Simulated scan of single mutants.
Amino acid sequence: MSQFEVPTVDISAYVVDGSPGDRAAVAQAIDQACRSVGFIQIVGHGIAPETAAGLAGAMDDFFGLPVADKKRWVRPAAENRGYTPPKSETLALSLGVQSEKRMKDFFEAFNVGSSASDYPQDHLLADHYAENTWPEVPEFQQRVDAWRDEVARVARIMITIFEDALSLAPGSLAALANHPIEVLRMNNYALPSGTHVEVDEDLIGMGEHTDYGIVTLLWADQVKGLQVLHDGTWHDVSPADGALLINLGDLTTRLTNEQWLSTLHRVKPPIVDGTIERRRSAAYFFDADAEAVVGPWDSFVSADHPRLYDDVTVDEHIRAKLAGSRAGVRNASAQRENAWVAATLT
């Protein structure tokens, strides 16, 4: 079994305007982590512990409601907002992975994100910028929005670090995100009290997948479940105290012509005495503007590294991914990803 460790990087030099040398050291560490693992723990991000506690409390208050109450906030799949009941999605299909044994993913979620009303001066593609639905849970919106504001700030900092780490012109990556598709997905891996399951190797909390956009920032419990594939082996990953987990998305893979790869990951629900142990996470997806055109940048294409991807709009890319995970339509446009996943899972 290969040695595996998720690198920890202190990004405070970018948060508090550190010296050029300190910022260069951070950028170098991020570049090395993105080339070797694709998952990173960041500390020094400046998000107060009480803000994270507020998010966790809001999630507990909502997911603790009866299932019938939560289903009041189910939204059309194309809008990517509101409540997702358990066994509603198969994330592996977003990568084109298909199997006769493929089961629906065993998690529930609640999604909020950027809305068209946040950018009244722009004419946006409505499906990606749907208005949010807020459940009738005291202080839910306030606590969630407090987290969203902070994690959005950190996402923008990561974009700046990525530009430096990849030796890009300042603002070149940020230019793809004037009104980015942003989704905060709050996940709950548990069953109602007293519900038992058959322990089976095929039981999946969230199927193997890569994220869709530029970067994902993840808050999670320190409960086993999240696994990252590295050198053909699945490894458990849990955040350190106060850390956020960062991973790359498919758009970054396309932009860098696979110099940085989005990392395959999944969630296997922890089973204790025949029941699923509670585990919570909140993934913030930063996915660029819907109309932005993404393909390998010239600086990452050469005779030794030919162009691996055609240009695609972020809208087209996200639609194909969501059609797989939510509508069960195998993503036929993910040939490279499908072949890579098939090779690593055999």
Rank of each mutant, 00 (worst) to 15 (best):
G96H: 07
A52I: 15
A283S: 08
T133Y: 01
A146T: 12
Y14C: 05
D221Q: 01
G54T: 05
A56Y: 03
W340R: 15
G54E: 07
D10Q: 01
Q41D: 09
D122M: 09
L125E: 14
A52R: 09
L95P: 01
D287F: 01
K101V: 08
E198F: 08
D311R: 15
T133G: 06
L229T: 05
D310F: 06
G207F: 08
G21H: 00
E50L: 13
L218H: 07
I30G: 11
V267M: 03
A165C: 10
D236Y: 11
P138K: 07
S262T: 10
A303F: 02
A77G: 02
N132W: 00
R148D: 05
W73N: 01
T253L: 10
D118S: 15
L65E: 05
C34M: 13
G57E: 13
P138Y: 05
G328Q: 04
A343S: 14
L55Y: 04
E182T: 12
G207S: 08
E201A: 12
S99W: 08
W219L: 08
A146W: 12
E208Y: 07
N331R: 10
G64S: 08
A327N: 13
S114M: 06
D61I: 10
D10V: 02
A165F: 11
A243C: 11
Q259R: 15
G194R: 03
A174P: 03
M158E: 11
M158D: 06
E136I: 03
K87A: 10
T51Y: 04
V15P: 01
H45P: 00
G57M: 04
A130S: 14
V341Q: 12
K101S: 14
V312E: 14
A58N: 10
